[in-house]
Design a protein around this nucleic acid. Structure first.
Lengths: 351, 351
DNA sequence: TCGGGGAAAGCAAGCGATTGCGCAAGCTGA
DNA sequence: TCAGCTTGCGCAATCGCTTGCTTTCCCCGA
């Protein structure tokens, strides 16, 4: 540590911690300091400069708790990621980072701070819930998790809740989410168009959004000469390792499926690796299609064909909805389009 | 929106917003409510239960600003990611998510909130800096960025700053970081051991940590029969697209390098894709080694050999250092070990 | 000379919680 | 019966800042 060992003093110690101390140093009242900081023109230029200089010299910073207690706004939005243990979708899934990143950008533009939380206030700890600290102006929840009812009750109790997820009927909160059923259908049609008939779906269908992707897939397949028996649904957590192992086991067992639709790009990439380890070629032997379109998907080999979710737009819309609520108006739901992004992992044919 | 359209009432409106209102409802004083919430045994069990029930019924939540103003602790740590535009390392790089995730875990264990920030308070806006809002008990900074001097000045002025990055001599803050020079050397030795002699380094050497990886590489090569002229250093931003294009251009131009050392796994994966697009085989024609060991690296094909940084330990140490400072003790620096993780992208020989 | 008016700064209330201290009621034992 | 203790709760100050309302001072015109 280099804390000015020469003098033995900590050079970091600010001399003034409160506005009152700055006022004292400047020989003015607290209110004048407050106005100087706010840039009020009710303070003379000289006084203002003197005060700002003292603030700088002393490394003084406004106490945001006191400030927001007085002004009645925290200018903070809490963002919580609904990751359950059984779910196992890891926080470091780039899908989350992307959406958090875009939320962060949108919030910053509006002058809001982002409080990142990993606990789920609507969870079982109802007591902790009741006493939960009211630390933000609103809460943006990413994912409805596996307990949408509890989330629903939570949103009914507290206002200022906005959710990324599926447009569940009867919910009590505004939702921003992409059209999962359509995404699933797109994937199904693309696989069909490339001559695939014996499909595998990889993902936890109890996760609402994933379930909708699956049913979208199924609906695209019906009446197209694909018997439902030909489509295999492998329910599993949301992580790479599960996808890798499931794929490995499935294809080792000698089945002859010719396509995999994974609930996330991360899972799709892991599945491709499993196929490669088994000596199966992608896309010649097995086509693979993912979901999300994370940045990396264009840089794996073969490039991953996938269903794109516009996370950037998603983040922006979530923040927009929140600001709408905070301003007292009625927010609306948003359905983001899902697009097919064709790369190489399904063959190059356009659907 | 489903706000109880039947009755026209918003069922969400809590009836009591402050402790005083709860006290009123319960027929007790505010102090009693406060003690009931805190679980003080100076309140009778019946009163306590009555109060807690009212709290629950009314959806009351403590105002954390008022609370922390009084108690003098915010229980919040700000985490800022030092991403500059020129740098272009994107927030959604899993390296960041991993470290933020582990910081979040460690903070949660200690009862702290995580305020995620993307602006750099030590940046050029010195005026904004002086007036910066003091919203957290401390600040954890990920990466020293490209302006370590400004960061140094900032840390000199304010206390409670902990940084992930390189152990720069003369810095005024505690650092947690991995041994980049050693990591670079490990990569160099591994490539040499696999018979590679004409290396390419991909990364922005003005980024301090990357620079140290590069010099570690160079030092491992000297005296090993590799003339420095044989090693190419390609300075570029921290993102996949740059790495892809640089690799494509380099190998299209007909050079015959036989190994790539990339400053991050994301870049390495993009480089592999470029090689694959050019028809070069990894590892037979060109070996590729990355840096970070993100989860995905074991799921790309071929598996990416890389230098592992222990981000989990990193997050924990960062939080530990911060708590040490907050408790008034002297924090110490941490150097995390870097390990070689051998997969397939350099050939399978152990070094 | 004096009053009006405007600029600059101060006073003090109050945001919503915590907490040391004080007080009343009830119980115990002498 | 009453001092003394325990139990349960209320009073009021306080955290650091913002802001409506005054106050002070100075300049200027009548």
């Amino acid at each position: 540590m280099n804390r000015n060992a020469m003098t033995g003093q900590s050079v970091k110690t600010p001399k003034a911690r409160t506005m009152a101390e700055i006022a004292e140093l400047a020989g003015v009242a607290e209110s004048t300091v407050s106005r100087a900081i706010a840039g009020s023109n009710r303070v003379s230029v000289e006084t203002k400069e003197r005060i700002l200089r003292l603030i700088d010299e002393n490394g003084y910073r406004i106490n945001s708790r006191a400030r927001s207690l007085r002004t009645q706004e925290t200018r903070t939005i809490e963002v919580v990621i609904a990751i359950s243990e059984t779910n196992r979708q890891h926080f470091s899934d780039p899908f989350f980072s992307q959406i958090i990143s875009s939320i962060g950008d949108a919030l910053a533009e509006s002058g809001y701070d982002l409080l990142l939380s990993r606990s789920q206030p609507w969870g079982e700890g109802s007591h902790a819930d009741a006493l939960a600290v009211n630390r933000a102006d609103g809460i943006i929840i990413i994912g409805q998790g596996r307990n949408p009812e509890a989330l629903n009750r939570y949103a009914e109790k507290y206002r200022n809740v906005v959710v990324w997820g599926a447009h569940i009927p009867g919910r009590s909160y505004p939702v921003v989410g992409s059209d999962n059923a359509h995404g699933g259908a797109l994937a199904g049609k693309h696989l069909l168009a490339n001559g695939r008939r014996r499909l595998v779906f990889l993902g936890d269908v109890n996760h609402i959004e994933v379930g909708m992707r699956h049913s979208g897939l199924v609906s695209a397949l019906t009446g197209k000469g694909v018997s439902s028996g030909q489509t295999l649904m492998l329910s599993m957590p949301f992580d790479s390792a599960s996808a890798y192992e499931a794929t490995l086991r499935l294809f080792q067992s000698g089945v002859n499926h010719d396509a995999i639709f994974a609930a996330s790009d991360l899972m799709a990439i892991a599945a491709m690796r499993a196929l490669s380890d088994l000596g199966a070629r992608v896309p010649q032997d097995v086509a693979v299609i993912g979901y999300d379109d994370i940045a990396l998907s264009s840089f794996v080999s073969p490039g991953l064909t996938t269903i794109r979710q516009d996370t950037m737009a998603g983040g922006r819309h979530l923040v927009e909805s929140m600001l709408t609520i905070l301003s007292g108006r009625e927010p609306s739901d948003t359905v983001l389009p899902t697009d097919l992004v064709i790369r190489q992992s399904c063959g190059a044919t356009k659907s």
